[in-house]
């Protein structure tokens, strides 16, 4: 229990909680659009960007690595666009292709760097695969803070446009909403949140923060504003709990801890949510007895 008041824990918990709150809300848009795996591909694709940035600056400096991650996230997205629009490969094919080739490149670069004596302190790189919130610095948390606040503000300002566009893109363009602008906004927010969250959750699992909360939200409500709010809160609660578990049991990586808690929430929602399995059974029994 002492942990709850420890300074380090609080810094880390604030970071992961805020990150998951923002990711849950922004990620819901992709979940509804059926494009959650774009986040997965981008998440994995940031990994080589991290290593290249490390190779250039020579230390695991938060800001440089984050910039490397953003650049590679953007590159990956343009590759995905180019592949789907200039070939017969479908979106899921392009995503699988980009995800594995970029991540493979990252792993290759990692072995090179870690086996090369001219690079020092290379073990910090591993934190970016599964995330290790315990080693998060204040700067990491500041970056998360900035990215989350920017994303949430943009979401609030463009709320109605995002809502109408996600539901009905054609209608949105007839009432003066610019579909490409909204698409670009959502994507930028996604890449930004992925990049700042890598240290905490890792490249492999970060997509879960974008998907699982939205899935949970959809199980409890049929109104967009409530779904996004539940998504944000579920993400935040899971992040706080997960970070606590990971800090209490030192060495347990943060990413997997948060994801496990989130998965438990998903399971509970599938059973007891508005249209959950158990809920439906109860309704049926009630319906028969009345």
């Amino acid at each position: 229990m002492e942990l709850l008041t420890s300074y380090t824990f609080l810094i880390v918990a604030i970071g992961t909680t805020l990150l998951s709150f923002a990711s849950g809300i922004i990620g819901t848009v992709s979940v509804i659009k059926g494009q959650s795996l774009i986040g997965d591909a981008i998440g994995h694709a940031t990994f080589p960007g991290i290593i290249l940035a490390f190779m250039i600056v020579g230390v695991t400096d938060t800001l440089s690595l984050t910039i490397g991650a953003v650049i590679f996230g953007v590159i990956a997205f343009f590759f995905i666009q180019a592949i789907t629009s200039h070939s017969k490969i479908t979106l899921d094919g392009a995503l699988a292709l980009i995800l594995s080739s970029f991540f493979g490149l990252g792993m290759a670069l990692k072995s090179f760097v870690q086996g090369n004596p001219s690079f020092h302190n290379t073990q910090g790189i591993d934190d970016y695969i599964f995330g290790q919130a315990a080693y998060m610095l204040r700067l990491d948390v500041y970056l998360i803070l900035i990215a989350s606040v920017i994303s949430l503000l943009l979401f609030i300002i463009f709320y109605h446009q995002i809502r109408i566009y996600t539901f009905d893109p054609i209608y949105s363009s007839t009432v003066g909403i610019n579909p490409s602008l909204i698409n670009f906004l959502v994507l930028s927010m996604t890449i930004l949140l992925i990049a700042v969250g890598l240290k905490a959750v890792g490249a492999i699992l970060i997509v879960n923060l974008l998907i699982a909360p939205g899935v949970i939200g959809l199980m409890w409500s049929n109104r967009f504003n409530i779904v996004t709010l539940i998504a944000g809160l579920a993400g935040a609660a899971a992040a706080f709990t997960g970070t606590y578990i990971s800090t209490a049991f030192a060495g347990f990586p943060t990413g997997p801890s948060i994801i496990l808690v989130l998965s438990a929430f998903v399971l509970i929602s599938m059973l007891f949510g508005r249209k959950g399995l158990v809920t439906r059974q109860i309704m049926k029994v009630r319906g028969e007895s009345s």
Binding site: I32, I164, V175, S221, R223, V227
Partner: peptide, 22 residues
């Protein structure tokens, strides 16, 4: 044919209210 996203969580009233956006 309404080419909308049917998975989108929205009530009928909210859809009609979108008409007020302009």
């Amino acid at each position: 044919k309404g080419e909308v996203n049917w998975e989108f969580p929205t009530t009928v009233l909210d859809v009609v209210l979108m008409g007020r956006y302009v």
